[in-house]
Design a protein around this nucleic acid. Structure first.
Lengths: 193, 193
DNA sequence: CGGTCTCTTGACGGAGTTCAAAGCTAGTGG
DNA sequence: CCACTAGCTTTGAACTCCGTCAAGAGACCG
């Protein structure tokens, strides 16, 4: 777990956490374990926590009025996940967050998040996380809007190769905005011709 | 212009700018005028400025490899516009920003933006702006992904009623991810049936 | 008044959905 | 350790929405 967090800081900010910094950073978080397919929170509730995944995987998704499910974000070891909208505005979440596999997370609540942000190092770290979320979302909008499903799938495979064989196809389909049947057909086309 | 900015602060943060604060906020910005259809910056360039619109309107958009154009954001008086990704990361922009009408803007560059952020009041203001951008983008993804074009258009009309009769239809179509012909047919259906 | 830009309308085609059913696979309990 | 089941993936056929191509009608500006 220590190595995972330090690597995350190195990757996001080119900064090696000292022992004291690591201590401060993790002092108010606690670990929690979930079975597969556990719901961490749902629409209506506030997202009171952000979760750092230590092992396993989770995803956030939305269900529209017709009952169709659409994945918003996938997260594996070393990723953060939550509904940032709800977490920051304290308004009810629009999203579910649910584990895919059996998963262990570090939990951070809003008060401790704010407290950590008083330290410029951690403030900057969390600002970069928000910025990265924004960038990923805009990139997704820009690169997938107006492309057909095959392009979207190829782009997804290129960006997240480690997800392709780890996340169930019906979830990838819901991320791409298509039905599992369509993704199955696309994959067949790509293999055959 | 003064009223526009003060209203913006009131709306974003419930804060009434004092004369001194207003002075500090605007001291390093300058105004600039553009004809309609002027390009403020394009892909490849860095977005070195953020623009606050005093009068007129502008939008950001993306052009894919096939040459199709997709609007990302519209902005009228009292809105900010830029490519935040490029502005914050200093990497080349993915987007165009272009005026729709003849438009007057306040211009703020990165150095002065950083300087303003040293003041906690303005730091918070700009953090809220980024947060709002993120929220709007996620909301758009969540509310339009998987809906048909008619739903997307109705949602757009509901969220931005003032845009519907001010932004040309072919730009609204490009925002919705459809062709102008399709939007025309959708509008006819809505009026008739 | 002529030219360009925008919006409308029609006919056809293609990508993705829906409905339905069958094959796989992994996890569970006997 | 096997058998069964529930959930995931694949496949087929009919249908729907939107895109493409093409052409015409308005609107705006010089």
């Amino acid at each position: 777990m220590e190595e995972l967090i330090k690597r995350n800081f190195r990757h996001a900010m080119d900064h090696d956490l000292s022992a004291a910094e690591y201590e401060e950073f993790t002092s108010h978080m606690f670990t929690k374990s979930y079975d597969k397919k556990s719901v961490l929170f749902q629409p209506g509730e506030q997202a009171r926590y952000v979760y750092f995944i230590l092992s396993g995987s989770a995803y956030s998704y939305y269900v529209n009025e017709e009952g169709d499910k659409y994945a918003v974000q996938f997260a594996v070891e070393g990723h953060w996940i939550s509904d940032q909208y709800s977490f920051f505005t304290e308004r009810p979440s629009l999203l579910y967050v649910e584990t895919i596999e059996s998963t262990e997370v570090l939990v951070l609540n809003r008060e401790h998040h704010s407290a950590l942000c008083e330290n410029p190092l951690f403030g900057k770290y969390f600002r970069i996380l928000v910025q990265n979320s924004f960038v990923a979302l805009q990139y997704r909008l820009v690169k997938t809007n107006g492309e057909d499903a095959e392009h979207r799938y190829l782009e997804f495979s290129r960006l997240y190769p480690h997800f392709v064989h780890r996340i169930p196809q019906y979830l990838i389909a819901s991320f791409l905005g298509i039905k599992p049947q369509s993704l199955s057909r696309i994959r067949r086309r790509l293999v055959q011709g």
